[in-house]
Write a protein that binds this DNA or RNA. Sequence first.
DNA 1: GCCGTTACGTGAGCACTGCTCTCGGCCTGG
DNA 2: CCAGGCCGAGAGCAGTGCTCACGTAACGGC
Lengths: 240, 240
Amino acid sequence: MSTIEGARARARREITAAIKDEARRGLAAEGASRLSLRAVARELGMASSALYRYFPSRDDLLTALIVDAYDALGEAAEETLAATPRDDPATRWVAVCGAVRAWALAHPHEFALVHGTPVPGYAAPQATTGPGVRVPLALLALTAEAQEDALLAPPTWDPLPPPVRAEAEALADEYAPGLPAPVVAALVAAWAQLVGLISFEVFGQYTGVVTARDEFFAHAVSRIAADIGLPTTRGGTPEE
Amino acid sequence: MSTIEGARARARREITAAIKDEARRGLAAEGASRLSLRAVARELGMASSALYRYFPSRDDLLTALIVDAYDALGEAAEETLAATPRDDPATRWVAVCGAVRAWALAHPHEFALVHGTPVPGYAAPQATTGPGVRVPLALLALTAEAQEDALLAPPTWDPLPPPVRAEAEALADEYAPGLPAPVVAALVAAWAQLVGLISFEVFGQYTGVVTARDEFFAHAVSRIAADIGLPTTRGGTPEE
DNA sequence: GCCGTTACGTGAGCACTGCTCTCGGCCTGG
DNA sequence: CCAGGCCGAGAGCAGTGCTCACGTAACGGC
């Protein structure tokens, strides 16, 4: 009942995938706002109305693409986390952030879909919360492992405002027991800051200001790592 | 020729302003993607075609709104910069960042216009570069004044990668002679990170994760201030 | 093997959009 | 005072998201 699959269901799965693929292609070419249902139907050689058998509305198609994009982004982070040695948390951090950035630069419109202006009014909350946290969870896992290995040495843990401390402790209890509250607070901020750094680049915000993008990003992100307390074992940034 | 203004020119100015006002209203209600030229024309009691006498296209209207938003954002920053004592750079920093955040939360769709997904393909570069730098320049002015007053004491100025150093020095020469290169590099990163922090809030990215938003933002932003080297004279964050 | 149920694809059509063009009237500068 | 510019109105084009009968083909229970 799971392996055996009627030709009907198979066709549905394949056509759904084809629609998403074509939509992704149109997305990369034109951007989300210019993406047209009729155009993807035309490209697929079917009537536009047929498309509604698979996605009840344009926004639902976009939501599906958002979920996929979140997953791809999270997978990129998790892959480099797995492929990276535990004993050098700072360079590992830079590598994971770099992987997120690389994915974003390779798929700018999909990145815009997940971290740009939300497209439908203000919807898309529940369905995307699952895959949406994979990247921050990877960063958190990285830090938790560093602490297990006694490699977490923050420069200064300034005291948190009480409400922030309470929330940070709750988060720590749920996702990384034993991690100090200031560190998880710093991680949440780091996540937002990372997205800010990448958004500026993807959205062309600092054209003319920063041209050595790779180096600038690596530098900024390694400063964040130092702020969190991930030690730079050796060879941080060269010169002098 | 400047004070004397024909009734014609005056009408044009007023109608242009009325169109932008109505467009801003529609923007706040529906968002940029749902903003309709015909709707604003309808609301203004004029034919939709008449609107093209004032803005050659929908994208041009949006571009005008973008410029205005940049200006409003920059003005908010500059105002609190002016209304804030020089001798406490860290709390001044937090205040300026807080003003930017407050404006963004009060005008979410306009903020999305300037720091969300770019609306037309990838256009709007030149016209917006002028007002677009007012906020970062305010942050830079704040830091430069702190240095003049010998209030700039970074924890560690780790060496910059050579290309970043070169660009940072060029920026320093142009906008704030005498400011150390690592500081201007940190400022650029801080600007992107600030936008990231605000974007997360405006775009509803951390619903359920952070609820004590004011405190969290103030904390995160004051950590950035410390990272740059702006000293917390007294009473940073309470507790213990 | 048959047959009702279900899913699917089609084409027409509605309401809406951005934008263009032509026309007719008003204000304005010479 | 009067020609030339600006401005508004209306019709119209091409395109959009989405809905709704309408046939057709596959499916599952008998």
